[in-house]
Design a protein around this nucleic acid. Structure first.
Length: 475
RNA sequence: GUGGCCAUAGUGAAACGGUUAUCACGCGAGUUUGUGGCACUCGCAGUACGGGUUCGAUUCCCGUUGGCCACCCCA
C-alpha cells in the first residue's frame, strides 16, 4: 500500500531529523533545515541552484573544446597559468568596481576561520593581474601572455547558458600597449570558435581613456536628461546609475533617442582614436569579420580603450537572441590600480558552456544522432572464462604499450554479452580468446561486418591488428 | 534582484479526483553453458520535497526546492 510506504518514509525522516541537530550544533538553523530536507528526500541530494554536472554524454565535448583551446592558445604563444579559485574579496571589489552588478550582488563572499574576507573568483582578469604583480612578472620579457581554463562563480539568476559556476577560456596579455596586441586577442577568440566550426562576429568599440570617458559621460548624461520624458522607466533609472547602459537598452521607445545620442568615438582623444583605428586595420588585415558597435560598453570598471564582444554569426537558422559567447578588452590601468607598476594589458574570456552548447548543435546537425565522433578503437577484446581473462589482461597491456588500444570489459563473463557490447561500440573486429585458443596458443580475429573469423597465432596478434589499422587508415 | 511558465523511472512521454501509475528508449538477465545485430521472455527504476482540501490526490490549492523563459546583468 502506498499509505504504508508514505508512513515509513515519514518515520525515516523523523529519525534523520533527530540525528542532524545533535551533530550540527554550529550549523545555522537554515542550513540544518535545508540539509534535513535533502536527506529526507528519497532521491537524495539535489544539485545546488545554478550548478551543473558534466555528464558522460557531454564529456567528449568538454575534452574537445579544452583541447582546441589549449592548441590555439599555445599556437599564439600564450603560456598556461592558473590562479586559486579563492582570492581576497577586495581584489575584485577594487578592480571590477564597487557599484558593478558583479560585485554588488553576484559575488560569493565568505569569511574563513581567521576572519579573512574572501570570495570565489567571479572572473579571471583581476586574478591574473594579481598574479602578475605577486610574481614580479614585469621582469619577464613583455608581453607576458597567459591563458587558462577554469571555473568562475557568480550568484546570478540561472537561465540557459548562465550558471553560477561556469567555465571560461581566458587569454591575457600584459605589459604592452599596442593595437596589434588587441587584434591578436580578437584573433585568438575568433579562430578558436572557427576551429570548432562556429562562425562568429566580433562587436568592436573603444571607450577611450578615463578622462575621455568622463567627459563623454557628462555630455551623454546632459543629453539624456533633456530627453528624459521620452525614455523608458528602466532607462530613466539608468541615467543616474550608469548612463552608458542606456545605449544598450532593448526598449523600443528608447531607440530613436539612442540613435541621436552623442557617440563616444567622437569624444576619444587623438591617441585613443588612433589606437582604435589601428586595431581595426589589423582586423581587416587578418580578415576577421567585425561590426562597429558604438553602444558597446562593458560591465566592469577596469576597461580602457578597446572593448569587444563576440557573438555567433547570424545565419539563417539562428533564431535565439544572441548571447555573447565572450568578451574582453584593454585594461591599461588595472595593474597599477592593484598596486603594481603601471602596466598595460588586454585580454578576453569565452564562456565554455555557451560555446559547447553551440558545438553540440553543430554535431547534431551533421549526423542527426547528436553524438561526438569519438576516436574509438576498432577492436574489442573478448575473453571466455576465468583463465582466458587472466591471459587477456597482459595481452591487452602489451598491445597498449605498442600503441594499439582495444575495448575490453572485465565485468561481463558471457561471451555473448561481450560481443553484444562490441556491436554497440561499432568495432570492426573482435579478438576472441577462449579455452581452446588458450591451450594451443592461438587467438580468433572476427570481422564483425562479415562474421568471418580467422584463427592466428597469439604472437602474430599485434602484427595482424596493425595490418587492419593500416588498411582502415588507407581507405 | 523582478516577472512569467514548469516539475511523473536515467531519458522522452501517457494516466475525467477513484483498483496494482502505463508505454517507448535505456540498463541487467535469459531463450542459445564458444559468438553480436533481429525477435521474444523476465527483471531494474518513478509521481521533487512539505503541508492543505477530499471518503480518496499524479491530478486541485499553498509553501519550499529545482529547471526554463524574459528583464537586469553577463560568459
Amino acid at each position: 500500500m502506498p499509505r504504508k510506504k508514505e508512513a515509513l518514509r515519514k518515520k525515516a525522516k523523523n529519525k534523520t531529523g533527530k540525528i542532524i541537530p545533535k551533530k550540527g550544533k554550529q550549523e545555522s538553523p537554515k542550513t540544518a533545515e535545508k540539509e534535513t530536507k535533502a536527506v529526507a528526500a528519497k532521491k537524495g541530494f539535489q544539485l545546488v541552484r545554478g550548478m551543473k554536472d558534466i555528464v558522460p554524454k557531454e564529456g567528449g565535448y568538454w575534452r574537445l573544446v579544452s583541447t582546441k583551446a589549449a592548441a590555439i592558445a599555445e599556437a599564439y604563444e600564450f603560456v598556461y597559468a592558473e590562479t586559486p579559485i579563492v582570492e581576497q574579496a577586495a581584489l575584485f571589489v577594487r578592480s571590477l568596481g564597487k557599484g558593478t552588478d558583479v560585485v554588488e550582488k553576484e559575488m560569493y563572499f565568505f569569511e574563513d576561520h581567521d576572519g579573512n574576507r574572501l570570495c570565489l573568483r567571479p572572473e579571471m582578469t583581476a586574478a591574473f593581474a594579481r598574479a602578475y604583480i605577486s610574481h614580479g612578472m614585469h621582469s619577464l620579457s613583455q608581453p607576458v601572455k597567459l591563458w587558462n581554463i577554469g571555473p568562475l562563480f557568480r550568484h546570478d539568476r540561472p537561465q540557459a547558458g548562465r550558471y553560477r559556476q561556469f567555465h571560461q577560456f581566458n587569454c591575457e596579455s600584459f605589459g604592452v600597449r599596442d593595437p596589434a596586441i588587441d587584434a591578436e586577442l580578437v584573433s585568438v577568440a575568433y579562430h578558436f570558435l572557427k576551429d570548432l566550426g562556429i562562425a562568429s562576429l566580433v562587436h568592436m568599440n573603444s571607450i577611450g581613456n578615463t578622462e575621455d570617458r568622463g567627459r563623454y559621460v557628462v555630455e551623454l548624461t546632459a543629453y539624456l536628461r533633456t530627453k528624459r520624458s521620452y525614455l523608458s522607466e528602466l532607462s530613466k533609472k539608468r541615467i543616474t546609475k550608469n548612463p552608458l547602459r542606456v545605449l544598450d537598452s532593448k526598449e523600443e521607445q528608447d531607440q530613436p533617442i539612442i540613435e541621436e545620442a552623442p557617440q563616444i568615438v567622437d569624444w576619444l582623444s587623438d591617441e585613443s582614436k588612433k589606437h582604435f583605428m589601428q586595431v581595426l586595420e589589423y582586423l581587416d588585415a587578418l580578415n576577421i569579420p567585425y561590426a562597429l558597435r558604438p553602444t558597446l560598453v562593458r560591465g566592469l570598471d577596469y576597461y580602457t580603450d578597446t572593448v569587444f564582444e563576440i557573438y555567433e554569426a547570424e545565419g539563417e537558422t539562428s533564431s535565439e537572441p544572441a548571447q555573447a559567447l565572450g568578451g574582453g578588452g584593454r585594461y591599461d590601468l588595472l595593474v597599477e590600480q592593484l598596486g603594481g607598476q603601471p602596466t598595460p594589458g588586454a585580454g578576453f574570456a569565452l564562456g565554455l558552456e555557451r560555446v559547447i552548447s553551440l558545438v553540440r548543435k553543430q554535431y547534431q546537425k551533421e549526423d542527426g544522432t547528436g553524438g561526438l565522433p569519438e576516436q574509438r578503437s576498432p577492436f574489442f577484446f573478448a575473453h571466455l572464462g576465468e583463465q582466458a581473462r587472466q591471459r587477456a589482461l597482459p595481452l591487452i597491456e602489451d598491445l597498449r604499450q605498442d600503441g594499439i588500444l582495444v575495448h575490453h570489459n572485465v565485468a561481463k563473463p558471457a561471451l555473448k554479452s561481450q560481443l553484444e557490447l562490441a556491436n554497440k561500440l561499432h568495432v570492426s573486429h573482435a579478438v576472441i580468446l577462449g579455452h581452446k585458443e588458450l591451450q594451443d596458443g592461438t587467438i580468433i580475429i572476427r570481422d564483425m561486418a562479415s562474421g568471418i573469423q580467422e584463427i592466428i597465432d597469439q604472437k602474430k596478434l599485434r602484427r595482424e591488428l596493425r595490418k587492419i589499422l593500416e588498411k582502415q587508415a588507407a581507405s
